[in-house]
Design a binder for these strands. Structure first.
Length: 296
DNA sequence: ATAGCGCCCTGGTGGC
DNA sequence: TGCCACCAGGGCGCTA
């Protein structure tokens, strides 16, 4: 089962998949099988407000997928406001996959998993399907210039793979905090997109114990951690993310980064660097994997 | 402001 | 074989 918890590399991989098929597709209808997924709209509202709209190029912020919706260009009259330009007000679907969410585009005739929660039928005979076993995933619908998006999105920290994420930015995020450095890495307001897997992997790569108070890291350690975060995320992204088990996603690709995991999910097995057994701790309420020899 | 914790939810696992 | 407690964990709301 577990296709791994979607973190930045997995969400970005999904974004790239959707970018290849979604732009230009018009929404013909919506099926909502679990209304709880919709955070700020009823199924009826979602259907009414998305019908006829056209997907633009998908974006991503942290672990949020941003799916722009434009009004169908040029169509029939009496639309409120200016309808001359393509710049007409639009909206966005904001999707968070949480742990087990999946977002795929499949032919409408293709059998769907029983965990399909919301499906948008498209004008080319396909469907954008949101499936989620644990039903933690969320969908917001936000009109441009309106409130109502997820609170966490607005408060998101810097994108770790963007140029803006410098060692100085990381140093500022950690400075003065007594919380474990791992807790700070998981705090999306400090750095966007890291989850349990890549926090553990980055801390291992940097040789830093996850329990260390964030503010106590030496400058050199912060620089190592900065480099480790970027390297681990970039590598995982290049591999299409991490997938556990032999999960085979319908349209999607199984990620390949699981082959490169150094500590995550490897409790009791030898550290790839020193051979000592990987320990499993509990830090910030999360299962945490660490080499007690290499990480100090 | 900050840190910590419980809650949400379901399938898989391990113990008896 | 069957049952059940327990675990996974991102974000959010609450508490101290």
């Amino acid at each position: 089962m577990c296709p791994a918890m979607p973190e930045l590399p997995e969400v970005e991989t999904v974004r790239r998949q959707l970018a290849a098929v979604l732009p230009g597709r018009r929404i013909a209808g919506v099926r909502v099988r679990l209304a709880r997924v919709l955070q700020n709209a009823s199924p009826e509202e979602l259907a009414r407000r998305t019908a006829g709209r056209v997907f633009g190029p998908p974006g991503r912020r942290g672990k949020y997928l941003l799916l722009p919706l434009f009004r169908a260009g040029g169509a029939s009259g009496s639309g409120p406001g200016a309808r001359a330009g393509a710049e007409e007000a639009g909206a966005r679907l904001i999707v968070h996959l949480r742990m087990t969410g999946r977002l795929t585009v499949e032919p409408a005739g293709e059998p769907e998993t029983p965990y399909t929660r919301v499906a948008f039928s498209l004008d080319d005979g396909q469907e954008l399907r949101f499936a989620d076993v644990r039903t933690f995933g969320t969908i917001h619908l936000v009109e441009d210039g309106q409130e109502g998006g997820p609170a966490g999105l607005a408060a998101l920290g810097p994108e770790p793979l963007a140029d803006e994420f410098t060692p100085e930015v990381l140093a500022a995020a950690l400075a003065g905090r007594r919380a474990p450095v791992k807790a700070v890495l998981l705090d999306q307001r400090r750095v966007a997109g890291l989850g349990n897997i890549y926090a553990d992997e980055a801390l291992f790569a940097a040789g830093i114990h996850p329990q260390r108070p964030a503010g106590g890291l030496a400058r050199a350690e912060v620089e190592r951690l900065h480099e480790a975060i970027r390297t681990v995320l970039a590598r995982a992204l290049a591999e299409g993310g991490t997938t556990f088990r032999d999960y085979v996603n319908g349209r999607g690709q199984p990620g390949g980064f699981q082959a490169y995991l150094q500590v995550y999910g490897r409790a009791g097995r030898p550290c790839p660097r020193c051979g000592a057994a990987i320990a499993r701790l509990r830090v910030a309420g999360r299962g945490t994997h660490v080499c007690l020899t290499c990480q100090t």
